[in-house]
Design a protein around this nucleic acid. Structure first.
Lengths: 230, 230
DNA sequence: CCAAAAGTGTTCGCTTTACACCCATGG
DNA sequence: CCATGGGTGTAAAGCGAACACTTTTGG
């Protein structure tokens, strides 16, 4: 039923999956197997299919291209990108999604999955399409999310210490924080973390209490970076 | 060049144009002239065309449906909506844009434009498609924007008083503010407003100094609502 | 004079920040 | 003992909420 002035196009979903690894903020990238940009690094993603939700497409593509199970992951829409010439294959509008996950080994099983890997955000330049810009937007969004939500816990495993959580903030923000004040701020925010009762023995130093993510979503009051963006 | 698993669809752009009018937050709506939802209120919007930018489509549709010139308006992307059944005409993904403008009379010239009008947000329910949800998301975004950016000035004309600006905050947030503290907060934020030197005589009371929008974009420190959302 | 809105000064209390200090472990 | 990171106490500084008070107009 195409009509006059009605442009038909394809819709892509691109994924910015972030983790904290080796004291650096890293992004999940794939090496493109097909043209255009064959052999070049890109964000994982793919085309929306019939009957599929945007988030559903994101979860499916994540699994197909990296072997990861995206269910349970907090997938947050960043923005839609629609410049007419952003994709040489034709008119393709892309919706970017952001997720944060703990530092887990990537499955190496699947065929497509074999090309997926972590890249430090600081060195992730020259990506295919307009993925440099998408990545920059998503990282800025993630930095803001740490200020106002409890999503930093998404970077940690099931159990973590306050030091682990502080490390997430320091790495994502690229800014050192006072360990003592950070401790109080986190523990003083109801629902941010819950003690598990366990302890973790470090290589050196006093054992640290273990926590898991609490029920709260929003941080009130927020934990603000002093170095304001903009 | 359609391939397997590549869904072709149409992309719509929907507009949430807000203003403050009669001490109420109001949204620009149209009455649909075509099916589906013929005769029902909806947000202005339309389909993306060939070679067109997302923002370009938003500006064009705004002009076609309301007669307004969207150039110069701060159009901010809110979100993309992609539920498979959100539009009975077929698979249509919509990208919503938000803009804030002063209380100007709407052009009544154009044929399509004749159905455009302002509706108080509080009474704007039962809109076509999923526009109720889009409106709610956009309004929440606007409320947050007032906290962290200088966009409240977009609701005012070229010249305005601090009282005018405070009224914008009070109406959009639905919450009274202390006039004295608000005054200092605004004037103490560099680049928020600039004095024009003029004064405005009210019907009753002391004349108020006039200001215009300053060069700043972000509010640092922010002006936070006490009634936290969520 | 009074009413009403604009604008200034000041106090109180909380949050943030900076840092001294103690705790618990391995070597 | 020392080094290292975890955790508590505390005082100073900064900021926002509340409100007394002055200013400038029209009636």
């Amino acid at each position: 039923m195409p009509e006059r002035d009605h442009l038909y196009l394809r819709l892509a979903v691109d994924l910015v999956i972030l983790t904290v690894r080796d004291d650096a903020l890293q992004v999940l990238t794939i090496t493109r197997a097909n043209k255009p940009f064959r052999g070049q690094a890109a964000l994982p993603g793919g085309f929306l299919r019939e009957g599929e939700d945007l988030v559903g497409a994101a979860v499916r593509e994540l699994h197909e291209e990296t072997g990861l199970d995206g269910r349970g992951l907090h997938l947050e829409q960043v923005e839609a990108y629609g410049e007419p010439d952003r994709d040489p294959r034709g008119r393709i509008v892309s919706v970017a999604y952001l997720a944060m996950m703990p530092n887990l080994p990537l499955p190496t099983a699947g065929s497509d999955a074999s090309t997926a890997g972590w890249t430090p955000v600081a060195r992730a330049t020259g990506l295919a399409f307009d993925h440099d810009r998408i990545l920059a937007d998503a990282v800025e969004r993630a930095r803001t999310r740490l200020e106002f939500t409890t999503l930093a816990t998404a970077f940690c495993g099931a159990d973590f210490t306050i030091g682990d959580l502080r490390n997430v903030y320091e790495v994502v923000w690229g800014q050192p924080l006072d360990p003592r004040n950070f401790n109080r701020k986190v523990l003083g925010t109801e629902g941010f973390v819950e003690p598990t009762g366990g302890k973790r023995m470090p290589e050196v130093g006093r054992p640290a209490a273990l926590y898991r993510a609490g029920g709260a979503t929003r941080l009130n009051p927020p934990i603000l970076r002093t170095d304001r963006h903009g």
